[in-house]
Simulated assay, not measured.
Amino acid sequence: MHRFKVEKMGCGGCAKAVTRAVQGVEPNARIDVDLGAKLVTVSGAAGPADRIARAIGDAGYLAGPA
């Protein structure tokens, strides 16, 4: 499981964009988004956390460890 703090994620559209970015590198992962806490939890991820964080960054959001 990987957890990320995504500071600029503030709406449903942002959550969808981040979810799509994660699914691009981890298509079978379960992705839970908590907009209030600005947290993204990726369960069942086989890849390294930095690869997921980079995909979120490529979508326009800065992701760091939570």
Score class of each variant (00 low, 15 high):
residue 13 G to I: 11
residue 27 P to S: 11
residue 21 A to R: 05
residue 61 Y to N: 03
residue 16 K to L: 13
residue 61 Y to P: 09
residue 26 E to W: 06
residue 48 P to W: 08
residue 61 Y to I: 07
residue 9 M to W: 08
residue 10 G to Y: 07
residue 20 R to A: 13
residue 44 G to Q: 11
residue 38 K to A: 10
residue 62 L to D: 14
residue 65 P to A: 13
residue 38 K to C: 01
residue 33 V to Q: 05
residue 1 M to W: 12
residue 55 A to K: 01
residue 25 V to M: 06
residue 1 M to Q: 12
residue 36 G to F: 08
residue 63 A to F: 03
residue 38 K to W: 00
residue 56 I to S: 02
residue 4 F to S: 00
residue 27 P to L: 09
residue 35 L to F: 00
residue 15 A to E: 02
residue 4 F to H: 09
residue 7 E to L: 09
residue 11 C to S: 07
residue 3 R to D: 12
residue 63 A to V: 07
residue 51 R to I: 11
residue 33 V to L: 02
residue 52 I to T: 14
residue 51 R to E: 15
residue 27 P to Y: 10
residue 36 G to C: 08
residue 60 G to H: 07
residue 36 G to A: 12
residue 29 A to W: 01
residue 65 P to R: 11
residue 37 A to Q: 13
residue 10 G to P: 00
residue 61 Y to F: 14
residue 54 R to E: 15
residue 29 A to Y: 07
residue 14 C to F: 07
residue 51 R to T: 15
residue 11 C to R: 09
residue 51 R to C: 12
residue 17 A to P: 10
residue 15 A to Y: 02
residue 25 V to W: 02
residue 20 R to S: 14
residue 19 T to P: 01
residue 11 C to Y: 08
residue 33 V to H: 09
residue 59 A to H: 08
residue 27 P to G: 10
residue 12 G to W: 08
residue 20 R to H: 14
residue 42 V to N: 08
residue 23 Q to W: 09
residue 10 G to I: 06
residue 40 V to M: 05
residue 52 I to Q: 05
residue 56 I to T: 10
residue 42 V to S: 01
residue 12 G to E: 01
residue 58 D to V: 03
residue 38 K to E: 03
residue 1 M to A: 15
residue 57 G to N: 05
residue 7 E to P: 05
residue 50 D to C: 09
residue 1 M to E: 14
residue 21 A to Q: 09
residue 4 F to R: 06
residue 65 P to Y: 10
residue 4 F to E: 00
residue 29 A to V: 12
residue 41 T to I: 08
residue 62 L to T: 15
residue 32 D to P: 00
residue 41 T to N: 00
residue 21 A to Y: 06
residue 24 G to K: 08
residue 49 A to L: 07
residue 31 I to S: 11
residue 18 V to W: 02
residue 11 C to P: 08
residue 31 I to T: 09
residue 41 T to L: 04
residue 6 V to P: 02
residue 63 A to N: 02
residue 54 R to K: 15
residue 34 D to M: 04
residue 17 A to N: 11
residue 19 T to K: 02
residue 20 R to N: 12
residue 20 R to P: 03
residue 16 K to T: 14
